[in-house]
């Protein structure tokens, strides 16, 4: 049985959802994957709906919402240790998880992917009590794909404002990595579009650690286009490691964020969780 959780957030997503809701339900019925549908409200949280789905013995939960909705659903499922397959329809055309799993923002395409039911068992990263599919950003410097502006000057100006921070990691109990970083990520999965190195395979039971060391003003200008891709590995001199367990030793109170939301601060440990999740993915997935 399919159990649908509709979670449009924010004015734009709500308007978009209201516009496509009818078409979405029709397409689901046409492809014979219709099921129970519930909308998240102030008193009906994702966690409650996941409980309800498990109680109803749903075999598949489809999240229709944002990356945050999908993350919350997965966390609720893992905590319940439920054997449920998860599907995703993104209401946000810039969804990074949608892109990673090869699920387009086009409703009909997304429903086709769900109906195709290509299921993959994926690793989850774990930071404290929180599980994540994508990556942890260390510090306050987040790198996403940006429009470089005229001759990339816009992105150069933006990156000049970033302050480097010291970082100390202990990997797999074997060695310590120390540097002053402009950016650092612990990756379970990521979109590799435009990136030099393919990282973030959520099936290899490894985390990829990507560190961009401090750059001079001249280097920021020189590598502004590489920085604007959002892939730290596109900048020469970036460091790459792989581990199952990463202890973020310091500095103390260094914010650790998933999808732009800070979940905890250093010192903290990030591991590949023993728990895994079954997800419906598309052909254009990034792994």
């Amino acid at each position: 049985m399919y159990f649908y959780i509709f979670d449009p957030r924010g004015e734009r997503e709500v308007k978009y959802f209201e516009r496509i809701q009818g078409r979405l339900l029709n397409t689901l019925a046409e492809t014979h994957i219709e099921g129970e549908t519930y909308r998240v409200t102030a008193i009906r949280s994702i966690e409650l709906l996941v409980d309800q789905a498990i109680g109803a013995e749903a075999k598949t939960i489809i999240v229709v919402g944002s990356d945050s909705s999908l993350n919350k659903t997965i966390n609720a499922l893992v905590r319940k240790k439920a054997d449920v397959t998860v599907g995703f329809i993104s209401l946000d055309p810039t969804s990074s998880l949608g892109h990673i799993f090869g699920i387009t923002a086009d409703i009909q395409e997304a429903v086709k992917i769900l109906a195709g039911r290509l299921v993959q068992t994926l690793d989850l990263g774990q930071i404290g009590e929180y599980y994540f599919l994508s990556k942890v950003d260390l510090g306050e410097n987040y790198f996403t794909r940006t429009d470089g502006g005229f001759l990339g000057l816009g992105s150069a100006m933006q990156f000049w404002k970033l302050r480097p921070f010291p970082v100390q990691l202990y990997l797999d109990g074997h060695f310590t990595v120390m540097t002053e970083a402009l950016g650092a990520q612990i990756i379970n999965s990521r979109s590799n579009k435009g990136c030099r190195v393919k990282l973030g395979n959520p099936k290899d039971k490894l985390l990829d650690i990507l560190i961009l060391s401090k750059l001079t003003t001249a280097q920021v200008f020189r590598y502004r286009k590489a920085l604007a891709t959002g892939c730290l590995d596109n900048v020469p001199g970036a460091s790459i490691f792989h581990a199952k367990r990463v202890e973020i030793m310091g500095p103390k109170k260094l914010p650790l964020a998933v999808e732009g939301q800070v979940y905890t601060k250093a010192p903290a440990t990030v591991v590949v969780s023993k728990e895994r999740i079954k997800m419906i993915v598309g052909k254009n997935r990034q792994f």
Binding site: I211, A238, H242, A243
Partner: peptide, 20 residues
């Protein structure tokens, strides 16, 4: 340390940058 198999051709699996 972990192992990665599906890297872009020619890219080393582990890189220790100059200031690390």
């Amino acid at each position: 340390m972990g192992k990665r198999e599906d890297y872009e051709t020619g890219a080393p699996e582990t890189i220790v940058g100059a200031s690390v």
